[in-house]
Design a protein around this nucleic acid. Structure first.
Lengths: 219, 219
DNA sequence: AATTATTTTTAGATTTGTCTAAATTTTATT
DNA sequence: AATAAAATTTAGACAAATCTAAAAATAATT
């Protein structure tokens, strides 16, 4: 079955919301999509007739297996395009999202399969989010918070949450981004701040507040 | 100013038609766009209020300078994406058009500028059609028909018209495509057929009918 | 439990892009 | 020149996606 850009955007937003809250309600989806609750109700009716939703009047709703499959397809396209924009065209990682919002609606299946191969079958997008494979399977990574990384363990930065521009600027200044290899030299228990050694760079110090937004992994 | 996908498609089609006939009429545009004349009239009214058209009721119409600028922007995007699909993702040149029809409507200016650099500032798409630069200037190539290429002059295939699948298959069999370097060894005047030497390959013979559809250029 | 507040849905309108059918204008033919 | 044919436009309708305003259902509060 084929879906309009608008339908795909609703499906994707429902998917993201239900990842966090389990079930979704009309107002929060309207807020997420910057539209009116009445518009949401209208679209839900459409998605229901297309058998993508588990829905109970006045209660709440979520995607069924059918809907999830569609959502994962869109997420997959979005993240592959983000990877392309950052790693091939040299966009900064904070610029790729808006453009991928358009590219994700290009429909050709073969395009996405070839793009994936061209990019070298990446597992994570420039924000560190996992890229679903063509069957909708998401690579599960044993990520851990930088705050809880043991001393002297080399690790790779896999994602950064809470995209506060000033925090991102600070991390950039220290040369820390997705894929950066680093280790924790010292932990100051009194305020939770960390002395970080980025490979081939001088050590730097991150507050606990910042460290909690940085996730790393190692083999 | 911003344009919808539908508007861009009309603008592009008008551009292509007026390249051939100078001025465009409602029925031919309707045929080109696989829609009804009444729909064309509706859209023309819209494009007129946006000051893109030179239009006279019941007579005919064409793009003004404003409209041409928009058209060239869309053509540029289309052909850069075609180049990407063929040269980076490995699509056959007869598969790229349909996908580029979608990609050409992605709006980011910076995306296209970066894509162009990434592709190495190509001048021609996989069909041999010229790619307008960011100012709308089209590289004018002194193309000439393979039939009128002088003997022993090395030349590059720059485009192939009349995309008859069987003819394309024949050319492919002989190793002749966009960018192929070749020369004419012998011309048989009685039927206009040509003996062609593709560099690093054995000679082959093309009928005049085929040769007339192949265009080449040299420095 | 009754009332108030919040959430959700319905009813009806609007915009965009399309359509059919009919009317109008231009072009071609007898 | 009158009539027939073709091309173009208008009038009015429709589907998709949105909106506002009001009604209905649920949740929270006194």
């Amino acid at each position: 079955m084929n879906f309009t850009t608008s339908e795909e955007n609703y499906i994707k937003s429902i998917y993201h919301l239900q990842q966090e809250t389990g079930t979704v309600n009309t107002n929060s989806l309207a807020a997420e999509m910057q539209t009116r609750p009445a518009s949401v109700t209208d679209m839900l009716k459409k998605l229901r007739t297309k058998k993508l939703l588990q829905y109970e009047r006045y209660k709440g709703f979520k995607l069924n297996d059918n809907g999830k499959k569609i959502a994962l397809g869109v997420v997959r396209k979005h993240r592959l395009w983000e990877f392309f924009l950052a790693n091939k065209l040299g966009f900064e990682w904070d610029k790729v999202h808006a453009i991928a919002e358009e590219l994700e609606h290009v429909s050709s299946k073969e395009l996405i399969e070839r793009l994936e191969v061209f990019l070298g079958n990446p597992s994570f997008d420039p924000h560190g989010d996992p890229i679903p494979d063509s069957n909708g399977k998401i690579p599960q990574l044993k990520q851990l918070n930088l705050s809880s990384l043991e001393l002297n363990q080399n690790a790779l930065v896999s994602s950064v949450t809470n995209q506060n521009p000033q925090m991102l600027e600070m991390l950039k200044h220290y040369g820390i981004g997705i894929g950066t290899e680093l280790k924790v030299m010292k932990r100051f228990e009194f305020d939770g701040s960390l002395e970080i050694k980025v490979l081939k760079k001088a050590a730097c110090i991150l507050s606990e507040q910042v460290a909690k937004n940085v996730f790393v992994h190692y083999d």
